[in-house]
Design a protein around this nucleic acid. Structure first.
Lengths: 156, 156
DNA sequence: TATGGGTCCGTACTATAGTACGGAATCAAG
DNA sequence: CTTGATTCCGTACTATAGTACGGACCCATA
């Protein structure tokens, strides 16, 4: 066995599918290793597997592939400063906090709906359907031509 | 002005773009109204705007368009029971809770990383990069051919 | 009636993150 | 050397939720 792993082996080591590695290569997230010395198939060095793991770990932390590419570029830059990475991580943390808040709002709204829903009988009594249909009120009023929106469509 | 709104007007009333309405129509989320009596353009009745709002409200609550289609089908079914809707909402609430948990894990991990990162200097000292590169350890050990994985790839 | 905006409709494209396919070449084992 | 599994490579397709485009047509207004 020559140095390095087959793509299938590398995939198993990194915990991804073969097609995923190829996809990452197409996206320039990981480098495609050469076929050593006239061989027909490529050999993946340990560092390639490491890199794929880096991508996965970063994904676990909520980074998109685009962001991961930036992190990798940073990592390859000898002049890169830790502050830049920290900034990225902090921005991502903010994003995570925002998402949590939004989901908590959604959860609260759903809870309220579920609590008032009778849970049986026709939909005419279903508070959930009501809420979806009637919220942010004024749909029938709105159809009564609010006048300030009527005369001219303003912007194209 | 004939009964109903132009698509542009309907879009504004519903708070979406014209193309979004067309998209919803293609997806059978909302019905395409007829062109009244030989007219060249369609007229959107208030109920169509209501339906688009329904879609938007449900999206706000985290339902996908596919799920919203199911809710709409339910709504159109005279035999539909409130329990079905409640079940959908409850399942969605569970999903929301799971997402929040996951995001909280991610947030905690990011916080730990940020806390230990020096915040300046080269990346060799950056704990964030370290964590991404080295977590779920054993990548170098794994490349040492664990033997139980080596002989036969098991399944095709 | 001319003009400019709105609408119609099909098709194609965006972004995200892969997954699947098919045929040829290659590799490892018997 | 044959067989069966992998690999290679390009292309196409999945799902999600739209957005954009181009030419033709329609409609209201000056």
């Amino acid at each position: 066995m020559r140095a390095g792993l087959s793509i299938g082996r590398a995939a198993r080591e990194a915990g991804v599918g073969v097609e995923t590695i190829r996809f990452y290569e197409r996206q320039s997230l990981v480098q495609q290793p050469p076929k050593p010395d006239g061989a027909g198939v490529r050999r993946y060095p340990a560092i390639a597997v490491e890199r794929i793991r880096f991508v996965r770990e970063a994904q676990e932390l909520g980074f998109s592939l685009r962001e991961i590419k930036e992190l990798l570029a940073l990592r390859a830059d000898p002049a890169a400063d830790c502050a830049e990475v920290r900034e990225q991580a902090t921005a991502k943390l903010d994003e995570v906090h925002r998402k949590i808040s939004r989901l908590q709002e959604i959860g609260t709204a759903l809870e309220r709906l579920i609590a008032t829903c009778p849970g049986r009988g026709g939909l005419q009594a279903c508070s959930i359907m009501d809420a979806l249909t009637l919220r942010s009120g004024g749909h029938s009023e709105a159809s009564k031509t609010p006048a300030h929106l009527d005369s001219k469509p303003a912007k194209g």
